[in-house]
Every structure is written in C-alpha cells, then in structure tokens.
C-alpha cells in the first residue's frame, strides 16, 4: 500500500536575516500510513512545524523527497487540511462564511457552500453561532471553527500544529475527544505536532520523537491502545504509563540538549 505521507532524507535550510544558513531539519525520514494518526513530539525549535510546512507544500525541501499520497509535493498539495497553532480563521468573516470558504474556493456556489458549512458547524457543536465574528468567540470555539474549516474539504491528510496548546486544560481534553470522534468518521491520515507527550500518546497510533535541532527522527513508537479512546480515561491505564516511560526516556535527552543550548545562546 502506498503510504499517505513519506519523507525521505529530507533536509531543510533557511537563510537567516544576517545571511547565515540555519539547518532546521537534517536527513529526516518519516512515513505515515493511510488512516494513521501520528503524533510528532520534540523539544522546542527542533523543526516540528517545519515538517508540516514541507508536507503541506507551503515550504519546499532543500534536499530529499516529500511524497504525499505517492506523489512528489510541488506547491500546495490538494487533499490537505491544516490547523494552525495560532488563530488563522478570517476575522472579517462570520463563522458560517469561515467554514464555507473551502468549498467556495473549490468552485461551489455560495448557497451550496453555506449549507455544507451549516452541517459542519453543527458537527463541531457551534450551531447558533453561525453569524458571529471570530472576536466574539472563545479560544476553544475558534478552534472548533478552524477544525470545521479544515475538515469540510474532506482532506485525506490532516496536519495539526499544536492546535490546542493555547487552550485551558479542561477545554483541551474536550477538544481532543471531539477531534478523535470527528477523525473516526473521516479516517484521514493525521500528523499532529505537539510538545505534550501525554497528548501525543492519548491521541496517536504512532509517536515520532524528533531530536534537538537540526531535527531528525530519533525513534518512533507504536501506541497499541484500543479505540475508541477517551483521552482523560486512557491516561489512567497502566499501559499508558508504560509507553509514556519508554518514550520519555528518549525525549528527555533531547529536551536536555535543547535546554543546554538555549542556556548557552542566552549566555553568549
């Protein structure tokens, strides 16, 4: 079976404003199977978000190959959804028009797009808020809008960049459970970037640990916990702590490396 996403020996370099070269990712290999929910964890600044930018086609790779659904990525790929870390819903559009944007861009009439959007708005539990503007919503509600906005395009690949990191703990658990139930109906392949190992294990089928920058995949762990899951209950299971212990052993070293470097650059 063709993997949904395949990164082969990918390196990404950026030009820094001072003219130097910064290597964000080096020789990164990562494979995601169709319908698989993958989480990517790693210390701050290890290039987690860069990985998503490469898969989505927002940024080209400097070296190596990026394949999505078996085809090399050139520019923005079709069939991709992207939920950003910070708010990226359009502040000048109502909830309804925000969610309807995707279908409209794909050639639907405004009427068709809006009726599709109404359905998705009710699926993410925002019925009654169709005419609100984003500034009138709470952070959790804006995330729901962002989810509906991405999922309405029925993407085969869903990329999520620390989408819930700005939410409070309770809202976050709520959103994680909703994400799992929404995803269960789509069976899209997901790459979920997070710095929270617990969140990664609770959500994913597989966890990739990225090393301190330049990022490369240090190890990947399958998470053989049964589905459907409840993210708050699953944390109580003994198997959960066992997996957590294993992955944390790996991750801790990288976090320490990254922390030491930050202290050094702070002292310099």
């Amino acid at each position: 079976m063709t993997p949904a996403i395949e990164l082969r020996g990918v390196t990404k370099r950026f030009l820094t404003p001072s003219g130097g070269v910064y290597t964000a990712l080096r020789d990164l290999n990562l494979t995601v199977q169709p319908g698989e929910f993958c989480a990517v964890v790693g210390p701050t600044g290890c290039g987690k978000s860069t990985t998503l930018a490469l898969i989505s086609g927002l940024e080209p790779a400097s070296e190596g190959e990026v394949l999505v659904l078996g085809k090399p990525v050139h520019g923005i790929a079709e069939d991709i959804g992207y939920v950003f870390q910070t708010d990226a819903v359009f502040p000048w559009k109502t909830v309804l028009d925000n969610v309807a944007a995707g279908p409209r861009y794909h050639g639907r009439t405004t009427g068709q797009a809006r009726s599709m959007a109404r359905e998705w708005i009710s699926r993410v539990g925002l019925s009654g808020f169709e005419d609100r503007y984003p500034y009138q919503l709470s952070g959790g509600m804006r995330k729901r809008v962002a989810l509906a906005q991405s999922l309405i395009n029925e993407p085969q690949i869903l990329l999520m960049d620390e989408p819930f990191s700005a939410l409070d703990v309770q809202t976050r658990a709520l959103m994680e459970n909703e994400l799992l139930s929404l995803w269960a109906n789509t069976r899209a392949s997901v790459v979920f970037v997070t710095h929270d190992l617990e969140e990664a294990i609770a959500l994913a089928d597989r966890v990739f640990v990225i090393s301190a920058g330049p990022g490369t995949v240090k190890a990947n762990y399958p998470v053989p916990l049964s589905r459907p899951r409840n993210v708050t209950e699953i944390r109580m299971q003994p198997q959960f702590s066992q997996i957590y212990g294993e992955i944390w052993n790996d991750l801790r070293d990288e976090v320490l490396v990254s922390y030491e470097r930050q202290k050094l650059s702070g002292a310099a």
Partner: peptide, 17 residues
Amino acid sequence: ERNLIANARILGADDRR
C-alpha cells in the same frame, strides 16, 4: 498576517481569491 495567507492557500484559494 502570513498565517491567514497560508490558511487561505491550503483551503484552496487561487491568487484572485
């Protein structure tokens, strides 16, 4: 905001949109 541009492009907006 670059985020908004990226989001619109991912959602399928062409240059005119």
